[in-house]
Protein backbone atom coordinates (compact mmCIF):
# COMPACT_ATOMS: atom_id res chain seq x y z
CA UNK A 1 0.00 0.00 0.00
CA UNK A 2 1.34 3.44 -0.85
CA UNK A 3 1.56 6.00 1.91
CA UNK A 4 -1.33 8.02 0.50
CA UNK A 5 -3.52 4.87 0.39
CA UNK A 6 -2.53 4.19 3.98
CA UNK A 7 -3.53 7.74 4.91
CA UNK A 8 -6.94 7.25 3.29
CA UNK A 9 -7.44 3.88 5.00
CA UNK A 10 -6.56 5.14 8.46
CA UNK A 11 -8.42 8.45 8.27
CA UNK A 12 -11.42 8.99 10.49
CA UNK A 13 -14.68 8.30 8.59
CA UNK A 14 -17.80 10.45 8.95
CA UNK A 15 -21.08 9.45 7.31
CA UNK A 16 -22.50 11.78 4.63
CA UNK A 17 -26.18 12.12 5.51
CA UNK A 18 -28.85 12.21 2.76
CA UNK A 19 -30.09 15.58 3.94
CA UNK A 20 -26.59 17.05 3.58
CA UNK A 21 -26.25 15.64 0.04
CA UNK A 22 -29.57 17.27 -0.70
CA UNK A 23 -28.41 20.60 0.72
CA UNK A 24 -25.12 20.41 -1.22
CA UNK A 25 -27.05 19.71 -4.43
CA UNK A 26 -29.26 22.71 -3.68
CA UNK A 27 -26.19 24.97 -3.33
CA UNK A 28 -24.63 23.44 -6.47
CA UNK A 29 -27.75 24.05 -8.54
CA UNK A 30 -27.43 27.80 -7.99
CA UNK A 31 -24.05 27.87 -9.76
CA UNK A 32 -23.87 28.59 -13.49
CA UNK A 33 -21.08 26.22 -14.60
CA UNK A 34 -20.50 22.50 -13.99
CA UNK A 35 -17.06 23.25 -12.52
CA UNK A 36 -18.48 25.73 -10.01
CA UNK A 37 -21.35 23.39 -9.19
CA UNK A 38 -18.96 20.54 -8.39
CA UNK A 39 -16.71 22.84 -6.34
CA UNK A 40 -19.61 24.09 -4.22
CA UNK A 41 -21.00 20.56 -3.87
CA UNK A 42 -17.69 19.14 -2.58
CA UNK A 43 -16.96 22.18 -0.38
CA UNK A 44 -20.35 21.79 1.31
CA UNK A 45 -19.72 18.13 2.07
CA UNK A 46 -16.23 18.95 3.42
CA UNK A 47 -17.55 21.66 5.74
CA UNK A 48 -20.28 19.38 7.06
CA UNK A 49 -17.84 16.53 7.67
CA UNK A 50 -15.68 18.80 9.85
CA UNK A 51 -18.78 20.24 11.52
CA UNK A 52 -20.09 16.76 12.35
CA UNK A 53 -16.73 15.70 13.76
CA UNK A 54 -16.36 18.81 15.93
CA UNK A 55 -19.94 18.35 17.12
CA UNK A 56 -19.01 14.88 18.38
CA UNK A 57 -16.05 16.42 20.18
CA UNK A 58 -18.29 19.11 21.75
CA UNK A 59 -16.39 21.88 19.98
CA UNK A 60 -18.95 24.55 19.08
CA UNK A 61 -19.11 25.84 15.52
CA UNK A 62 -21.27 28.36 13.71
CA UNK A 63 -22.02 26.67 10.39
CA UNK A 64 -24.89 29.02 9.58
CA UNK A 65 -22.47 31.91 9.09
CA UNK A 66 -20.42 30.01 6.48
CA UNK A 67 -20.04 31.73 3.10
CA UNK A 68 -21.20 28.48 1.50
CA UNK A 69 -24.74 29.69 2.06
CA UNK A 70 -24.06 32.77 -0.08
CA UNK A 71 -24.03 31.75 -3.77
CA UNK A 72 -22.51 35.07 -4.91
CA UNK A 73 -19.45 34.55 -2.69
CA UNK A 74 -19.18 30.96 -3.98
CA UNK A 75 -19.38 32.29 -7.53
CA UNK A 76 -16.39 34.57 -7.00
CA UNK A 77 -14.32 32.55 -4.53
CA UNK A 78 -13.49 28.92 -3.72
CA UNK A 79 -14.52 28.99 -0.05
CA UNK A 80 -15.34 26.28 2.50
CA UNK A 81 -15.17 28.13 5.80
CA UNK A 82 -16.34 26.92 9.19
CA UNK A 83 -16.24 29.22 12.23
CA UNK A 84 -15.18 27.63 15.48
CA UNK A 85 -16.83 29.68 18.21
CA UNK A 86 -14.44 32.02 19.96
CA UNK A 87 -11.37 30.67 18.16
CA UNK A 88 -11.49 31.60 14.46
CA UNK A 89 -12.20 30.07 11.07
CA UNK A 90 -11.17 26.65 9.78
CA UNK A 91 -11.07 26.09 6.04
CA UNK A 92 -12.29 22.64 4.97
CA UNK A 93 -10.66 21.47 1.77
CA UNK A 94 -12.28 18.59 -0.12
CA UNK A 95 -10.18 15.92 -1.84
CA UNK A 96 -11.98 13.76 -4.39
CA UNK A 97 -11.82 10.00 -3.97
CA UNK A 98 -11.43 8.18 -7.27
CA UNK A 99 -12.41 4.60 -7.84
CA UNK A 100 -11.78 1.89 -10.39
CA UNK A 101 -14.83 0.31 -11.91
CA UNK A 102 -13.76 -3.10 -10.69
CA UNK A 103 -15.47 -4.15 -7.48
CA UNK A 104 -12.26 -4.68 -5.51
CA UNK A 105 -12.07 -2.87 -2.18
CA UNK A 106 -8.57 -1.51 -2.62
CA UNK A 107 -9.27 0.37 -5.82
CA UNK A 108 -9.85 3.74 -4.26
CA UNK A 109 -7.29 6.49 -4.40
CA UNK A 110 -6.76 10.18 -3.87
CA UNK A 111 -4.24 12.59 -5.32
CA UNK A 112 -1.04 13.01 -3.31
CA UNK A 113 -1.33 16.79 -3.39
CA UNK A 114 -4.00 18.97 -1.90
CA UNK A 115 -4.44 22.63 -2.72
CA UNK A 116 -5.49 25.76 -0.86
CA UNK A 117 -6.84 28.53 -3.12
CA UNK A 118 -5.15 31.95 -2.69
CA UNK A 119 -8.44 33.63 -1.71
CA UNK A 120 -8.37 31.77 1.63
CA UNK A 121 -4.65 32.08 2.44
CA UNK A 122 -5.37 34.65 5.15
CA UNK A 123 -7.64 34.90 8.16
CA UNK A 124 -7.79 31.17 8.87
CA UNK A 125 -6.66 29.31 11.97
CA UNK A 126 -6.10 26.15 9.93
CA UNK A 127 -6.95 23.97 6.95
CA UNK A 128 -8.57 20.55 7.35
CA UNK A 129 -8.43 18.17 4.38
CA UNK A 130 -11.38 15.86 3.81
CA UNK A 131 -11.56 13.00 1.32
CA UNK A 132 -15.07 12.87 -0.11
CA UNK A 133 -16.33 9.48 -1.23
CA UNK A 134 -19.89 10.12 -2.45
CA UNK A 135 -20.42 6.53 -3.63
CA UNK A 136 -19.83 5.19 -0.13
CA UNK A 137 -21.54 8.23 1.42
CA UNK A 138 -18.47 8.66 3.55
CA UNK A 139 -16.10 11.55 4.20
CA UNK A 140 -12.66 10.92 5.66
CA UNK A 141 -10.85 13.50 7.72
CA UNK A 142 -7.25 13.25 6.50
CA UNK A 143 -5.51 15.81 8.71
CA UNK A 144 -4.75 19.48 8.96
CA UNK A 145 -2.16 22.20 8.54
CA UNK A 146 -2.00 25.51 10.38
CA UNK A 147 -0.82 27.64 7.47
CA UNK A 148 -1.51 27.75 3.74
CA UNK A 149 2.14 28.19 2.67
CA UNK A 150 2.21 28.36 -1.13
CA UNK A 151 -1.15 26.66 -1.41
CA UNK A 152 0.26 23.20 -2.24
CA UNK A 153 0.04 20.55 0.45
CA UNK A 154 1.49 17.05 0.44
CA UNK A 155 -1.39 15.15 2.03
CA UNK A 156 0.79 12.52 3.71
CA UNK A 157 2.63 15.33 5.52
CA UNK A 158 -0.50 16.76 7.14
CA UNK A 159 -0.70 16.81 10.92
CA UNK A 160 -3.06 14.17 12.32
CA UNK A 161 -6.53 15.00 13.62
CA UNK A 162 -5.29 14.43 17.14
CA UNK A 163 -3.00 17.43 16.70
CA UNK A 164 -6.00 19.49 15.54
CA UNK A 165 -7.77 18.72 18.83
CA UNK A 166 -4.67 19.76 20.74
CA UNK A 167 -4.26 22.91 18.65
CA UNK A 168 -7.88 24.00 19.18
CA UNK A 169 -7.49 23.28 22.88
CA UNK A 170 -4.38 25.48 23.00
CA UNK A 171 -6.18 28.29 21.19
CA UNK A 172 -9.01 28.04 23.72
CA UNK A 173 -6.61 27.89 26.66
CA UNK A 174 -3.47 29.80 25.84
CA UNK A 175 -0.45 28.67 27.83
CA UNK A 176 0.42 31.18 30.54
CA UNK A 177 4.14 31.76 31.08
CA UNK A 178 4.45 32.25 34.83
CA UNK A 179 8.00 33.58 34.47
CA UNK A 180 6.47 36.78 33.17
CA UNK A 181 4.55 37.18 36.41
CA UNK A 182 7.79 38.07 38.17
CA UNK A 183 8.27 40.85 35.59
CA UNK A 184 4.76 42.08 36.32
CA UNK A 185 3.34 40.86 33.00
CA UNK A 186 0.07 38.97 33.16
CA UNK A 187 -2.01 37.17 30.55
CA UNK A 188 -5.60 38.30 29.99
CA UNK A 189 -7.93 37.35 32.81
CA UNK A 190 -5.29 37.10 35.55
CA UNK A 191 -6.12 39.97 37.88
CA UNK A 192 -5.24 41.37 41.26
CA UNK A 193 -7.57 39.72 43.68
CA UNK A 194 -9.10 43.09 44.66
CA UNK A 195 -9.87 43.92 41.01
CA UNK A 196 -11.37 40.53 40.49
CA UNK A 197 -13.54 41.04 43.52
CA UNK A 198 -14.74 44.40 42.15
CA UNK A 199 -15.47 42.93 38.70
CA UNK A 200 -17.24 39.99 40.26
CA UNK A 201 -19.47 42.02 42.56
CA UNK A 202 -20.54 44.18 39.57
CA UNK A 203 -21.91 41.06 38.00
CA UNK A 204 -23.69 39.71 41.04
CA UNK A 205 -25.84 42.66 42.00
CA UNK A 206 -28.83 40.41 42.31
CA UNK A 207 -27.09 38.72 45.20
CA UNK A 208 -26.75 41.27 47.97
CA UNK A 209 -24.97 38.88 50.35
CA UNK A 210 -21.41 39.59 51.28
CA UNK A 211 -19.40 38.09 48.44
CA UNK A 212 -17.04 35.36 49.52
CA UNK A 213 -14.12 37.11 47.90
CA UNK A 214 -14.73 40.17 50.06
CA UNK A 215 -12.60 38.61 52.77
CA UNK A 216 -9.57 39.55 50.66
CA UNK A 217 -10.77 43.12 50.68
CA UNK A 218 -10.72 43.24 54.45
CA UNK A 219 -7.06 42.63 54.92
CA UNK A 220 -6.79 38.85 54.86
CA UNK A 221 -3.66 38.00 52.94
CA UNK A 222 -3.83 34.50 51.53
CA UNK A 223 -0.17 33.85 50.96
CA UNK A 224 1.76 36.49 52.92
CA UNK A 225 5.17 35.19 51.83
CA UNK A 226 4.47 34.88 48.13
CA UNK A 227 6.24 37.10 45.60
CA UNK A 228 3.23 37.45 43.38
CA UNK A 229 -0.42 36.43 43.53
CA UNK A 230 -3.12 36.63 40.88
CA UNK A 231 -6.60 35.21 40.34
CA UNK A 232 -8.82 34.37 37.41
CA UNK A 233 -12.60 33.94 37.15
CA UNK A 234 -13.58 30.57 35.70
CA UNK A 235 -16.96 29.88 34.13
CA UNK A 236 -18.17 26.31 34.29
CA UNK A 237 -21.13 26.09 31.91
CA UNK A 238 -23.56 23.77 33.67
CA UNK A 239 -26.96 22.58 32.50
CA UNK A 240 -28.59 25.05 34.87
CA UNK A 241 -26.74 28.33 34.52
CA UNK A 242 -23.07 29.02 35.04
CA UNK A 243 -20.96 28.24 38.09
CA UNK A 244 -18.37 30.99 38.58
CA UNK A 245 -15.27 30.27 40.59
CA UNK A 246 -12.06 32.10 41.35
CA UNK A 247 -8.78 30.28 40.71
CA UNK A 248 -6.09 31.84 42.87
CA UNK A 249 -2.41 31.21 42.25
CA UNK A 250 0.56 32.51 44.24
CA UNK A 251 4.22 32.08 43.33
CA UNK A 252 7.46 32.22 45.24
CA UNK A 253 10.80 32.24 43.48
CA UNK A 254 13.36 29.76 44.78
CA UNK A 255 17.00 29.20 44.00
CA UNK A 256 17.99 27.38 40.74
CA UNK A 257 15.12 29.05 38.83
CA UNK A 258 12.60 26.87 40.62
CA UNK A 259 9.23 28.25 41.61
CA UNK A 260 6.93 27.28 44.47
CA UNK A 261 3.27 27.30 43.50
CA UNK A 262 0.21 27.64 45.75
CA UNK A 263 -3.23 27.09 44.28
CA UNK A 264 -6.70 27.60 45.72
CA UNK A 265 -10.25 27.71 44.36
CA UNK A 266 -12.82 30.05 45.97
CA UNK A 267 -16.51 30.64 45.38
CA UNK A 268 -17.58 33.97 43.85
CA UNK A 269 -20.67 36.13 43.72
CA UNK A 270 -22.82 35.85 46.81
CA UNK A 271 -21.78 32.27 47.49
CA UNK A 272 -20.13 31.61 50.81
CA UNK A 273 -19.33 27.94 50.19
CA UNK A 274 -18.00 25.99 47.26
CA UNK A 275 -20.36 23.51 45.62
CA UNK A 276 -19.62 20.01 46.86
CA UNK A 277 -17.76 17.48 44.68
CA UNK A 278 -15.79 20.20 42.97
CA UNK A 279 -12.36 18.88 42.01
CA UNK A 280 -9.11 20.74 41.55
CA UNK A 281 -6.34 18.77 39.86
CA UNK A 282 -2.72 19.36 38.99
CA UNK A 283 -1.97 17.93 35.54
CA UNK A 284 1.39 16.90 34.14
CA UNK A 285 2.23 17.85 30.55
CA UNK A 286 1.07 14.35 29.55
CA UNK A 287 -2.38 15.04 31.01
CA UNK A 288 -1.81 12.68 33.96
CA UNK A 289 -3.23 13.88 37.28
CA UNK A 290 -0.45 14.44 39.77
CA UNK A 291 -2.63 15.68 42.62
CA UNK A 292 -6.40 15.98 43.13
CA UNK A 293 -8.53 17.55 45.85
CA UNK A 294 -12.31 17.48 46.09
CA UNK A 295 -14.66 19.79 47.98
CA UNK A 296 -17.04 18.36 50.62
CA UNK A 297 -20.24 19.85 52.01
CA UNK A 298 -19.29 23.23 53.40
CA UNK A 299 -15.85 24.13 52.14
CA UNK A 300 -14.97 27.82 52.01
CA UNK A 301 -12.19 26.95 49.58
CA UNK A 302 -10.02 24.04 48.47
CA UNK A 303 -6.32 24.00 47.80
CA UNK A 304 -3.58 21.83 46.35
CA UNK A 305 -0.55 20.86 48.38
CA UNK A 306 2.14 23.40 47.55
CA UNK A 307 4.29 22.14 44.65
CA UNK A 308 7.58 23.10 43.07
CA UNK A 309 8.11 23.62 39.34
CA UNK A 310 11.44 23.51 37.52
CA UNK A 311 12.34 25.70 34.56
CA UNK A 312 11.18 24.26 31.25
CA UNK A 313 8.20 22.43 32.75
CA UNK A 314 4.58 22.64 31.62
CA UNK A 315 1.68 21.93 33.91
CA UNK A 316 -2.08 22.37 33.99
CA UNK A 317 -4.72 23.17 36.58
CA UNK A 318 -8.08 21.57 36.01
CA UNK A 319 -11.25 22.54 37.82
CA UNK A 320 -14.20 20.19 37.31
CA UNK A 321 -17.75 19.89 38.57
CA UNK A 322 -20.29 17.25 37.52
CA UNK A 323 -18.26 16.28 34.47
CA UNK A 324 -17.76 19.85 33.21
CA UNK A 325 -14.19 21.07 33.36
CA UNK A 326 -11.95 24.04 32.69
CA UNK A 327 -8.20 23.60 32.24
CA UNK A 328 -5.62 26.36 32.50
CA UNK A 329 -2.15 25.64 31.13
CA UNK A 330 1.11 27.05 32.40
CA UNK A 331 4.77 26.94 31.52
CA UNK A 332 7.88 28.03 33.37
Amino acid sequence: MTSVELLLNNALPMPIMSKIIQMAQGFAEKQPTPAKAEQVYLNTLAVWAVHDYLELMEIDTDIKSSDLGNPVVCLGADVADLKVKGLGTLECRPVKVFENDSASESNRWISELGSIPPEVWQERIGYVFVAIDPKRKESKLLGFTKTAGTGKVVLTQLQPLDALLEYLDQLAHPIVNINQWFANQFAAGWQQIEDLWAADSDQSLEKPNVPALRRFDTGVKLFPDSDVMRAKLLDLAMDLGTQRLALVMALTQERDRKVNVFVQVHPTGGDRYLPSNLTLALLADSGDRLQVVQSRGLDLWIQLRQFRVEAGTNFGLQVALNGISVTESFTL
Binding site: I21, A24, Q25, A28, E29, Q31, P32, T33, P34, A37, E38, Y41, L42, P134, K135
Partner: peptide, 11 residues
Protein backbone atom coordinates in the same frame (compact mmCIF):
# COMPACT_ATOMS: atom_id res chain seq x y z
CA UNK B 1 -25.49 6.07 -6.54
CA UNK B 2 -23.09 8.88 -7.38
CA UNK B 3 -24.33 12.32 -6.43
CA UNK B 4 -21.66 14.10 -8.46
CA UNK B 5 -22.73 12.35 -11.65
CA UNK B 6 -26.30 13.15 -10.73
CA UNK B 7 -25.70 16.86 -10.39
CA UNK B 8 -28.27 18.68 -12.50
CA UNK B 9 -27.09 19.66 -15.95
CA UNK B 10 -26.68 23.31 -15.10
CA UNK B 11 -26.01 24.26 -18.71
Amino acid sequence: TDPIENLPDTH
